Computed example of a mutant assay.
Amino acid sequence: MIDQLRTMAIFQAVAELGSFRQAAKTLNLSPSVISHHVSTLEDQLGTPLLYRSTRRMSLTDAGAELLAASQRMTAAALDGLSAVQRRAKQPTGTLTIAAATPFSQSPYAEAFTRFAQTFPDVHLKVQLDDTTVPLEGSTVDVAIRGRTHDLDDSSYKVRKLGKVQFCVFAAPSYVHARPKPQSMEDLADWDWIQSPPISWSAFATLADGTAPSRSPRVVATCNNFALARKFVEEGLGFMIETYPLVADDFRAGRLVQLVPRVKLRPIDVYAIYPANSPKDGLAHLFVDFMMGQPWAEEHSFGVR
Results as ranks from 00 to 15, higher is better:
Arg21Gly: 04
Val246Arg: 06
Thr40Gly: 01
Gln127Arg: 14
Met57His: 02
Ser39His: 11
Ala62Ser: 14
Gln22Thr: 13
Pro120Asn: 03
Leu78Glu: 15
Ser215Lys: 11
Gln293Trp: 00
Met73Gln: 13
Leu41Tyr: 09
Val259Glu: 06
Thr148Glu: 12
Ser138Leu: 04
Thr101Tyr: 06
Ser213Trp: 00
Gly253Tyr: 06
Arg86Pro: 00
Pro91Tyr: 02
Leu161Arg: 02
Ile198Lys: 07
His176Glu: 14
Ser32Tyr: 02
Glu233Ser: 10
Arg304Gly: 11
Ala111Gln: 08
Glu298Val: 12
Phe166Trp: 13
Asp153Ala: 15
Ala226Val: 11
Thr96Leu: 06
Val303Gly: 07
Arg229Leu: 15
Leu49Gln: 12
Lys160Met: 14
Ser32Pro: 00
Thr118Arg: 15
Thr60Phe: 09
Tyr273Thr: 05
Ser32Val: 07
Val133Asp: 00
Leu245Thr: 10
Arg52His: 10
Val175Ala: 07
Pro31His: 08
Asp79His: 11
Ala170Lys: 02
Val256Tyr: 01
Ala23Gly: 06
Val246Tyr: 06
Ser183Glu: 01
Pro172Ser: 04
Ala228Phe: 01
Leu5Cys: 00
Arg86Phe: 01
Gly162Glu: 03
Ala68Phe: 05
Gly302Arg: 10
Leu227Val: 15
Phe301Ile: 13
Leu187His: 04
Ile240Trp: 09
Ala83Phe: 03
Val232Trp: 03
Gln71Asp: 10
Asp61Ser: 13
Trp295Ser: 09
Glu241Asp: 15
Leu59Ser: 07
Ser154Phe: 09
Asp208Thr: 10
Ala207Ile: 15
Ala23Val: 09
Gly93Pro: 04
Glu136Met: 05
Asp189Tyr: 01
Leu50Ala: 07
Asn223Leu: 08
Ser104Asp: 12
Thr74Trp: 05
Ala99Gly: 10
Glu42Met: 07
Thr242Asp: 11
Ala116Val: 00
Ser104Met: 14
Ala100Pro: 03
Arg261Ala: 03
Val38Asp: 06
Ile10Lys: 05
Tyr156Leu: 03
Lys125Trp: 00
Val259Arg: 07
Asp43Tyr: 02
Gln90Val: 01
Leu50Gln: 07
Leu128Ser: 08
Leu67Met: 07
His284Gly: 01
Thr221Leu: 01
Leu187Asn: 02
Ser199Ile: 04
Asn28Ser: 14
Glu16Thr: 15
Ile240Gly: 09
Ala99Ile: 08
Thr205Tyr: 04
Asp79Trp: 08
Gly292Pro: 06
Glu16Arg: 14
Leu245Val: 12
Leu161Val: 02
Lys89Tyr: 00
Ala202Asn: 12
Val175His: 04
Ile34Gln: 04
Ser104Ile: 12
Arg229Asp: 14
Asp288Arg: 05
Ala109Gln: 14
Glu42Ile: 08
Leu245Gly: 01
Ala211Leu: 04
Gly162Asn: 12
Asn223Pro: 11
Trp295Asn: 08
Pro181Val: 06
Val140Tyr: 03
Asn224Phe: 02
Asp288Tyr: 00
Arg254His: 13
Arg229Ala: 09
Thr132Ile: 13
Pro48Arg: 12
Lys160Arg: 14
Thr221Tyr: 00
Gln105Tyr: 10
Ala77Leu: 12
Val84Gln: 13
Leu41Pro: 08
Pro216Glu: 05
Asp43Arg: 15
Ala202Ile: 08
His149Asp: 15
Pro102Cys: 05
Phe115Pro: 03
Lys279Gln: 10
Pro260Ser: 05
Asp288Leu: 00
Pro197Trp: 03
Ser19Cys: 05
